[in-house]
């Protein structure tokens, strides 16, 4: 019966994942490998193609202009692109929040602790969820409508060119584990339910929830990847890399705030990053 409960939990989280995340790994890999039929992404590889692609970017997600913060969008292709990324990130935070709420027991936790778990977990989750969209040459953006090359991202001015390179390095290694969407759903829940986040008021129930999801993940990986040795341990090791990447990412954003005088940081992202580490 216990194994049956763990299987049911894995199914439930996979269904929630499919419900809240519009671009699954299965869809992304189909697009990246050219097996998605007519769904061929627009490739951005230089400034000219970026200009052409901007129209697509702004159709695919809320544009900077729509936020109407009382000023014209700033000049500079890097900042404009950065704002598009922020809008998509804010929307992704909403998706992750909905997913978190679907984890059995999450909404019964102290509300302050729910806020803390999301504050500390959401950027780790967002970075992890970029992996299925990436290969060594570039990344899908804008819900899979656009493929942006890694070389183009590296050609942007500092520090913008430094923002995604560590994520590519991580993703290429992480993708060799070949997790699918059902594995990812459980792993995301494990990350969200980390009982060692600073300032948690009631750690015990969080650890109990995480323990159950961990058991479910271990069992699921054994069934789903019978030939992959030590996969559970390898997956859990990635949590350390994710924490380091968030620390580095937040430092880059702090640097941007100092160097880019006109920079506007989305209020939701500001909330999350303020006093994070």
């Amino acid at each position: 019966p216990e194994a049956a409960d763990l299987r049911a939990l894995a199914r439930h989280l996979y269904e929630a994942y499919l419900k809240y995340f519009p671009l699954t790994k299965a869809k992304a890999r189909a697009i990246l490998s050219g097996k998605s039929g007519d769904n061929v992404p627009f490739v951005i590889h230089d400034i000219k193609s970026l200009m052409e692609g901007e129209q697509l970017i702004n159709n695919g997600q809320t544009s900077f202009q729509e936020h109407n913060i009382g000023s014209d969008p700033p000049d500079g292709v890097e900042l404009r692109f950065f704002y598009s990324c922020q809008s998509r990130s804010a929307e992704a935070v909403r998706e992750v929040t909905e997913f978190a709420k679907s984890i059995p027991g999450f909404v019964n936790l102290d509300l302050n602790d729910q806020v803390t778990l999301l504050k500390y977990g959401v950027i780790e989750v967002l970075i992890l969820m970029m992996s299925p969209l990436m290969n060594k040459d570039g990344t899908l953006i804008s819900y899979g409508q656009i493929f942006m090359t890694r070389e183009f991202l590296k050609s942007l001015r500092k520090p913008f060119c430094q923002m995604l390179e560590p994520k590519f390095d991580f993703s290429v290694k992480f993708n060799t584990l070949e997790l699918d969407d059902s594995d990812m759903a459980l792993f995301l829940a494990v990350i969200i339910l980390s009982g060692d986040r600073p300032g948690l008021l009631n750690v015990k129930p969080i650890e109990q929830l995480q323990e159950t999801v961990l058991h479910s993940l271990e069992l699921h990986l054994k069934i789903n990847h019978p030939d992959s040795l030590q996969l559970f341990a390898k997956v859990l090791q990635k949590m350390t890399d994710l924490r380091q990447m968030v620390t580095d990412h937040v430092q880059l954003i702090q640097l941007l705030k100092k160097t880019e005088v006109d920079m506007f940081l989305h209020p939701l992202l500001q909330e999350i990053m303020k006093d994070l580490y």
Binding site: T62, A90, E91, V93, R94, T97, E98, K101, V107, L111, N112, Q114, V115, T116, L118, K119, G199, P267, L268, E271, I272, K274
Partner: peptide, 21 residues
């Protein structure tokens, strides 16, 4: 904590549409 994270708090309490974000 809730005071310092009003948007996050709102997202947790009810589903917010992308436009409201």
């Amino acid at each position: 904590l809730k005071e310092k994270h009003k948007i996050l708090h709102r997202l947790l309490q009810n589903s917010t549409s992308p436009v409201e974000l």
